[in-house]
């Protein structure tokens, strides 16, 4: 299951990381080097072990529905790089560009 340059390009795109072509081969080699060690897991059984552990895990504690968020010590404007009229700003997107859903 060797990692190809196209795999790295694809994954970099998903992760919004710009990898210069000159560095691509290095990352391909390193990921292959690391993932080669992961192959030992294949020989091990244990299918369903995680699900079994999860099935006995204690459930989460919930929060009451009362207003009172952790306050900010300084206003958003003091750390956001681009704000206007209380909005964060990014370069203009067409409506539904990238078509992501909620």
């Amino acid at each position: 299951m060797a990692v190809t340059p196209d795999d790295v390009r694809h994954v970099a795109q998903l992760a919004r990381l710009e990898i210069p072509e000159a560095e691509l081969a290095m990352y391909v080699d390193q990921l292959n080097g690391i993932l080669a060690h992961m192959e030992e897991l294949r020989a091990v059984g244990g299918a369903g072990a995680a699900a079994q552990a999860e099935s006995t895990r204690e459930g989460m504690r919930l929060r009451p529905d009362t207003v009172g968020a952790v306050p900010l010590a300084v206003p958003l404007e003091s750390f956001a790089a681009a704000m206007r009229d209380g909005f964060f700003l990014v370069p203009r997107l067409a409506t539904h560009e990238a078509g992501e859903e909620s």
Binding site: R84, D85, G86, F87, F88, L89, V90, P91, R92, L93, A94, T95
Partner: peptide, 14 residues
């Protein structure tokens, strides 16, 4: 995401 408030920019309200 508000696309029509500022020219050339998308405004984000969280």
């Amino acid at each position: 995401s508000v696309h029509d408030r500022f020219a050339g920019l998308t405004a984000i309200d969280l």
